[in-house]
Design a protein around this nucleic acid. Structure first.
Lengths: 191, 191
DNA sequence: CTACAGTGGAGCACCGGTGTTCCACAAGGG
DNA sequence: CCCTTGTGGAACACCGGTGCTCCACTGTAG
């Protein structure tokens, strides 16, 4: 078949996805993992990995795209424009928590995701910014907290919850409950 | 001078400390930094660094000891047995925040200070545990939050605050205020 | 002045990860 | 059946960090 096979389903697309998935998993655990380890995790030879991603940086670029895409989907699922700001943030937290290992990866390699769209200083996802500003207005998010800080708190709590889940033998549900509870308190307007 | 020079003040002790301080700074920024970079930051030749710490692991052991010592001093300064649980935690947060780069280092290399004293599963600083339990009893810390989770939240907030301070051009005072505010809300008992 | 502690540059071998090439093998489509 | 596509083992050179040795330099105590 002489087709160009850019993004249609096929052997190549499946292998490529397997490598990306494995990379997220492995690099999430250990950001300095070698390409060999990633190849093993993907059930693929190192040669094959190099065929798809000639240089390490090529793989990282693909991971960046994949990460952004998953973040976008999660944000869509959270229906950020419905309900109060705090409720929307809670839903976003829930959706992000499902991202699993990707949380660790993003946390240890923030530059993978630091979208160039966001202004250089005080970078912040614009959707999150509007969400927080809505929360400020509707009185469900502490107006003393800038959107950028709310974003920091959200991510640090997510990461804490995810590693807490990995370190202890708590259930996924319980971990998310703890995160939601502390995050809710953290952003709530104070007396 | 044929003295043993174990921990008295002297050229060796000063050089050794300079290396340790530089290592905390450099490794806090980039956990994969080379020994050469650390030596440069310490204004010391790589040869000298190797004289004090023959292997990388030796330096890491020294960093572990130094880190523990600073943590202990910070905890002492916080007078953890005075006032309510929440107040003590707030003071501890304040003291820890002063640790600066050490926060990043501990956060990226937790095994450096994961004290073997702490029980393997659900590891937790015993002083923090008693503090949190006091907070549970005196009604200033949400009884739904186990001590281990409070510890996770404390550290993740400290790290978030520290990197927020590094990323934005906010004042140290403002950053600490944000951390204290969100941490306070996070652990507060919920209506 | 002499002796010695402390330093640090230069150079070396070693090791692991990387990027690349070559070739053998299996599956499926003409 | 042959030929293309995808694969992956093996081997190679390269590079950077590491651990080590040797030696020249400086400063200070005796």
């Amino acid at each position: 078949m002489h087709v160009r096979d850019t993004q249609e389903s096929g052997t190549r697309a499946r292998t490529r996805q397997a490598i990306i998935d494995a990379a997220i998993e492995v690099l999430g655990q250990n950001p300095t993992a070698s390409l060999g380890e990633i190849a093993v995790a993907a059930n693929v030879g190192r040669t094959t990995l190099h065929r798809y991603f000639p240089e390490r940086s090529d793989l990282l670029k693909a991971l960046s795209a994949e990460g952004m895409s998953r973040l976008d989907r999660a944000a869509d699922n959270a229906r950020l424009d419905e309900g109060t700001g705090a409720d929307a943030l809670r839903r976003l937290c829930h959706e992000y928590f499902e991202l699993g290992s990707l949380l660790s990866l993003i946390f240890s390699e923030p530059q993978l995701i630091d979208d160039a769209d966001w202004s250089e200083q005080g970078a912040c996802d614009p959707r999150l910014r509007t969400l927080v500003e809505r929360g400020h207005r509707d009185g469900t998010i502490d107006p003393e907290l800038p959107a950028t800080w709310v974003q920091s708190v959200l991510w640090s709590q997510l990461y804490a919850g995810w590693s807490y889940l990995a370190d202890t033998h708590i259930s996924r549900y319980e971990a998310l409950r703890l995160v939601a509870r502390t995050l809710g308190g953290a952003i709530a307007p104070k007396g």
